[in-house]
Simulated assay, not measured.
Amino acid sequence: MPRVLSDERRDFVQAIAEFCRRECGTKQQRDELTGGGEHPHNQELYGKMAELGWLGAYIPEEYGGAGLGMTELCLFLEETAYGRAPIGGFATTIISAAAYAKFGSPEQKRTVLEGVVAGRLEAVSMSEPGAGSDVGALTCKAERRDGGWVINGQKTWCSNAHISDHILLTARTTPGGTKHEGLTQFMVPTGTPGLEIRGIDTMGGREVNDLYFTDCFLPEDAVVGTVDQGWKQLMAGLNLERMILAALMLGTARRAFDDTVGYVKEREQFGRPIGSFQALRHRIADMATELECARLLLDDVARQIDADPERTFPREASMAKLKCTELAKHVSLEGMQMLGGYGYATEYGMEALLRETVVSTVYGGTSEIQRDIIGKTYGL
């Protein structure tokens, strides 16, 4: 079904779509931009988007942004994902920027938010080898010393740390109490002595990192927000993180679906296009229906957030993340099956979509965690 958008939003989406077709519309272009898929982020392309003002769409006007809402942010994410734009650093940048906008000092806000508009990147670090879904179990510690803080410990799965200006770090500042107490967030420049960033090899290319802190000194003004209130600050940003990931995967699912439909219309076996066989035609129909349901859900949650930005939507945002990521994985797997051997070939690109979507049900809170959150909102 056609999406009902205002003239401004329709023009916004069309401009992004045209940009992606022109700049990264072919596999050859994308391979050149990403080193054959090894680097999910291309800074030159990202800089062009900054010049167009798109990266600052969600940033307040006082910092050079457009001050737009969740709806516009989701449209941008969905369309760039559909267009296969290699801007993998944008999601963590916006997640970090929102935290600074809510809790940062005036100087932190200026540095980060104006940097986002200009095309610079940010990273956020929570997970540890022993603290993934159970983020509250983290042990990386920050101790007061010499008028500042000294960080020791290891973090892992930190997306884009190697290409970012700063890392928004969550560390334990006060031991004892419950596991959700005594956590604090810090702004850590990536060149700080005592911080080592070491890449982790994945099937998605060079994207995530281990972080090693060894007597890493930070000044007092590196604290973001309030000491020992890091858990509450983390919870305040979950709407945004889940909506970002949902929008990205909705766009990726749409791309996998359209590529699959295009293939089954052209590929002939037994004297007819394979899409004309009922077994495939019905699967296509089911996926199209599920995509429309996911889009309607995401659009509705975005509108609710725009109408009441200070309210948290744990149930709705988790539903959007769960639905869009699981659907993206399903659609890419179906695409792989329908393309047959060609789905496995890098020439056709479905295998890349599969690699991207499989991990989406893990990062940003696994599907199991999303279901648990949704269940708890019903008093279970």
Rank of each mutant, 00 (worst) to 15 (best):
A246H: 06
A246V: 01
A246N: 00
A247G: 07
A247V: 06
L248K: 06
L248R: 11
L250S: 03
L250D: 10
T252V: 02
T252H: 09
A253S: 06
A253V: 13
A253Q: 03
R254H: 14
R254V: 09
R254A: 05
R255C: 04
R255K: 02
A256F: 13
F257S: 12
F257K: 13
F257M: 12
D258R: 15
D259Q: 10
D259M: 15
T260W: 06
T260D: 07
T260I: 07
V261I: 14
G262A: 03
G262K: 10
Y263M: 14
Y263P: 10
Y263D: 00
V264L: 04
V264H: 07
V264T: 07
V264R: 01
K265P: 03
E266N: 02
E266T: 07
E266D: 15
E268Q: 15
E268A: 12
Q269K: 09
Q269C: 15
F270T: 06
G271E: 09
S276L: 08
S276F: 15
F277W: 11
F277I: 02
Q278Y: 08
A279Y: 08
A279Q: 15
A279S: 06
L280V: 12
I284V: 08
I284R: 05
A285Q: 11
D286A: 02
D286I: 04
T289R: 12
T289H: 13
E290C: 14
L291Q: 06
E292F: 00
E292V: 01
E292I: 04
C293Y: 14
C293V: 11
L296F: 05
L298D: 04
L298G: 05
L298N: 00
D299I: 02
D300C: 03
V301A: 10
V301N: 04
R303M: 12
R303E: 08
I305N: 06
I305D: 03
I305L: 11
A307Q: 01
A307E: 04
A307M: 01
D308K: 05
P309F: 08
E310D: 06
E310N: 05
R311K: 05
T312E: 09
T312F: 12
R315W: 00
A317H: 07
A317G: 01
A317F: 06
S318E: 10
S318Q: 07
M319K: 07
M319W: 03
A320L: 03
K321A: 00
K323H: 10
K323E: 12
K323N: 08
K323M: 06
K323A: 02
C324P: 15
T325G: 14
T325K: 07
E326D: 14
E326Q: 09
L327T: 02
L327Y: 02
A328W: 11
K329E: 13
H330Q: 00
H330T: 07
H330M: 01
H330C: 11
V331F: 00
S332R: 02
S332W: 04
G335H: 03
G335E: 00
M336I: 05
Q337I: 14
M338R: 14
G341F: 08
G341L: 04
G341I: 00
Y342G: 04
Y342V: 08
G343W: 01
G343F: 02
Y344N: 12
Y344Q: 15
Y344K: 10
A345M: 13
A345L: 12
A345W: 13
E347S: 10
E347W: 15
Y348W: 13
Y348D: 13
G349K: 03
M350N: 05
E351Q: 12
E351C: 09
E351W: 04
